[in-house]
Computed example of a mutant assay.
Amino acid sequence: MHRIDCPWCGPRDEAEFAYRGDATVRRPAPDAGIDAFYDYVYTRANPRGWHTEWWHHAGGCRQFVQVVRHTMTHEIAATGKAGDTLPVPSEPVPSEPVPGA
């Protein structure tokens, strides 16, 4: 079980939160065209390493929280409110275990 530090409630169990998606994706301009909106809705990267995400504190204050999480280790480096600029670690991605090692 992971602990997520809600900016309003403090550290809480991961079970109180719902993952809501990539926090780095920006909505296209209204006149951007159908291809831009298709990409916005359906095309997503599956990053490996540090990633900024939205989590909804559904079992608590019901606020949206930004979380900087490592997608391989699930380590959480930072949390913040919607308008906050969070630091993303520049550490390299840990190497994958070698099968049979």
Rank of each mutant, 00 (worst) to 15 (best):
S90P: 00
V41S: 05
D84I: 08
G83E: 05
W50H: 01
E75W: 04
W50K: 00
E96I: 02
R62V: 10
G83F: 00
A36V: 13
W54I: 14
S90G: 13
P47Y: 05
P30E: 06
F37V: 02
A36T: 14
A32H: 08
E91D: 12
G83R: 07
G10I: 01
W55M: 06
G49H: 06
M72F: 12
F37P: 00
R12F: 00
S95W: 05
G33S: 08
V93R: 15
E75A: 13
T79N: 10
A15W: 01
A29W: 08
V98S: 06
G21S: 05
T71H: 04
G33K: 04
G83M: 03
A58M: 14
V41L: 11
R12A: 08
P28V: 04
P28F: 05
P87F: 04
R26P: 05
R27Q: 14
Y38D: 15
H56S: 08
S95D: 15
V25K: 09
Y42D: 03
E53V: 15
R3S: 13
V67Q: 11
Q63P: 02
T71K: 03
I34R: 12
H57S: 12
V67E: 09
C61F: 13
H51N: 02
S95Q: 14
P89D: 10
P87N: 07
D39C: 04
F17L: 10
Q66M: 10
E14V: 06
Y40Q: 04
P99L: 01
T52I: 03
F17A: 09
T79D: 10
E16A: 07
P87T: 09
C6F: 03
Y42S: 01
I4P: 00
P92G: 08
Y40F: 12
G83P: 03
P11K: 03
A58V: 15
A58E: 15
R69K: 13
I34P: 01
E96D: 11
V67I: 11
H56R: 12
R69I: 10
T52K: 12
A45Y: 04
M72H: 09
P7A: 06
E16Q: 04
P99T: 03
F64P: 09
A29T: 15
T52L: 15
E96R: 01
D84A: 15
P47V: 06
A45Q: 11
C61P: 13
H57E: 14
P94F: 07
V68E: 13
A78R: 07
T79V: 03
D13R: 01
H51P: 00
P7G: 04
H57R: 10
V67Y: 08
R62P: 00
P89M: 09
P92R: 11
R48M: 05
G83L: 02
T79P: 06
V25P: 01
I34W: 08
T71G: 03
H56A: 12
V88P: 01
V41N: 07
R44V: 04
T43K: 11
F37W: 12
F37N: 05
